[in-house]
């Protein structure tokens, strides 16, 4: 475990806590894409299949449980909570996210490290996570007003995988045989998808103005 990996995990944890805080305290999911939350629940469900078979460390297992629990509870809140679901804007959150799942599954069936069920599902989760933010970014561009918590959520979610890239560089130079092209390429693509959001997020922070993405 290196500092980049720990910073990445803490940033990822902070992103889910910010979102849970927003939804649980102000009982609103305005500006939050349910489609992205469903994709992330699927990402964790397919990535952490080994949570019961392979014990890595207490930290690893606890973090997996937190990410699984938070992503599924956020989906539950937006879909079923009597107050929160009223603030969900389903007319704006129209990204056809199954069009993301199908290519990711097909790609995982052809490009993977080993052709086993767990490995293919794990690879699928990597590809899916790379594009899971798209419904949320599309929604942000449609809803003019981006509230601070939603902006912070997206920023932290994008930053965590960026920190993981530094972790991979560090491990590449310090650990022999540490080569995982699939993980690296998916992680770089995922971070690049946030590039324009990061740009507008920093601009709004620098000029101390409300975050607005161009239509």
């Amino acid at each position: 475990m290196n500092i980049f990996r720990l910073a990445g995990d803490m940033t990822h944890l902070a992103s889910v806590l910010v979102l849970l805080l927003k939804i649980h305290t102000i009982k609103s999911c305005a500006g939050v894409s349910l489609k992205t939350q469903e994709l992330y629940a699927l990402v964790f469900a397919t990535r952490y299949l080994d949570i019961v078979t392979d014990f890595i460390s207490v930290y690893n297992t606890v973090m997996k449980l937190i990410f699984l629990g938070s992503s599924f509870s956020i989906v539950w809140y937006i879909r079923h909570h009597r107050v929160v679901r009223r603030s969900y804007d389903k007319d704006q959150d129209t990204f056809r996210h199954y069009l993301l799942m199908i290519p990711c599954m097909l790609l995982a069936l052809f490009v993977h490290e080993k052709f086993t069920f767990k490995e293919v599902m794990w690879t699928f989760s990597l590809y899916l996570e790379a594009v899971a933010i798209l419904p949320q970014l599309v929604l942000l561009q449609r809803t003019r007003n981006i509230d601070n918590l939603t902006g912070q959520y997206v920023f932290l979610l994008g930053a965590y995988r960026g920190l993981y890239i530094f972790n991979w560089i560090y491990r590449y130079f310090t650990e022999p045989h540490f080569v995982h092209w699939i993980t690296w390429i998916a992680g770089v693509v995922q971070t690049l998808l946030y590039a324009d959001f990061f740009y507008y997020y920093f601009e709004s922070w620098k000029n101390n103005v409300r975050l607005q993405l161009p239509a």
């Binding site: 990996r5 995990d9 990822h12 080994d50 392979d54 890595i56 460390s57 690893n60 973090m63 997996k64 990410f67 490290e113 794990w122 993981y164 972790n167 650990e175 045989h177 540490f178 995982h180 993980t183």
Partner: peptide, 10 residues
């Protein structure tokens, strides 16, 4: 343990 190593991230 190598296999574990490659799956020790979140």
């Amino acid at each position: 343990c190598y296999q574990k190593n490659s799956k020790d991230e979140l």
